[in-house]
Structure formats: structure tokens, C-alpha cells
Simulated assay, not measured.
Amino acid sequence: MVAEGGSAGGLLMGAITNLAPDRFAGILAAVPFVDALTSILDPDLPLTVIEWDEWGDPLHDPEVYDYMATYTPYENVADDASAYPKILAVTSLNDTRVLYVEPAKWVARLRDAGAPVRLKIEMQAGHGGVSGRYESWRERAFEIAWILEVLRLSDAENAETTAAPAPVES
């Protein structure tokens, strides 16, 4: 099974990766909010202060800080993450909601801990990904190809199973 989520759903992807790495073959995290604690501690970021109503204010409330630290993906990467599922983190350079540094920092920590992880940074995209129908389709095709590879359903990995079936003798 491959789990997929983006933005705050990307935070969920990071959390389930840390909590139950053996339950998934792969994790696709799109513009993942995986360094939430660091970001929400910075009131100069565009969404931080307005998000305090929903998330709490870890900058001024130690209880909120301690609680967030229990589940935020970046802070909870295992020291040995070699048993983690394959991870694809996709982010965008021009995202003002989840800055590209969050998944980049998370991926660096995952790699240091031995996790099998790939990072793709879209250079012309924002929080919603690339614009344009064909570019969007191309991006989704890349993600689906990765999922098929992880699930070992790609043509390259199953050449003998994708060949034409033998004729049936009557």
C-alpha cells in the first residue's frame, strides 16, 4: 500500500511514516508540512499567526510546543530509518504556504538516518503544483509511475508478467 497526502496531509504522511513504517510500501508526500514546529514558531511567515487559532501557539505556550513535538515529522525521524518505506517528497520552489525548505530539511534528516527517499522540487510551481493542464498531467504521471515502481507494478519490473498471454489450446 502507498499512502499519499499533501500540505497538512503531508504532515500526516510524515507522522505515519514515523509511527508505522512497516505498514506501507511507499509514502508520497506533496508539499508536506513536515517541519511544522519550526514554521509555526516564526510569526513572520505569512500563515503562522492565523494558524495559531487552529494549531495552538507553541511560541508562547510550552504545552502546545511539547504536544506538537510529539508528532511533527521532522522532530520524530527514527535514528535508524533504514526500515522506512520508500518516500517521494514533492515540493515547489514558489510555495508560500509550505516553504520548500521544510521537505528539503526533512529529506536530509531521513537520508542521514538511512531512509530510502527521493526529493523533487518543482522550480516553477506553487502550493497547488505546476500550472497548465499538460504540465499537471505530466507531474501526476511522474507520481503514478513512482507509485507503480514502489508497488512493483511497472513494466520494467514485471516484463514477464506484462507479456502477451500464451495462446489457449482448444
Rank of each mutant, 00 (worst) to 15 (best):
S39T: 10
V31T: 06
A163W: 00
Y67A: 15
L41M: 13
R152A: 15
P165S: 07
A115M: 05
K105W: 01
V90D: 06
R138T: 04
V168Y: 12
D80V: 08
V34S: 09
I87S: 01
N158D: 08
R109S: 12
P58H: 02
A164I: 04
V31C: 07
Y100N: 00
A83S: 13
F24A: 14
S7K: 02
G132Q: 10
L47K: 02
G5E: 03
V49D: 06
Q124D: 09
E139P: 00
R111A: 08
A36P: 02
T48G: 11
V98F: 02
Y100A: 02
G26W: 00
E54L: 02
A81M: 06
G26C: 04
A36C: 14
Y65F: 15
M13D: 12
V77K: 01
A3W: 03
D66S: 04
K105E: 13
W52V: 03
S39P: 01
R138P: 03
Y74R: 02
E135L: 12
F24Y: 13
M123H: 08
S82I: 10
A166D: 11
V34I: 15
A25N: 14
S131P: 13
N94V: 03
E54P: 00
A159N: 09
P58C: 06
S7G: 09
Y134P: 09
E122R: 00
I27Y: 07
K120C: 05
V117Y: 00
T161M: 14
V31R: 01
L99E: 05
L11W: 07
E51I: 08
I27N: 11
L28G: 05
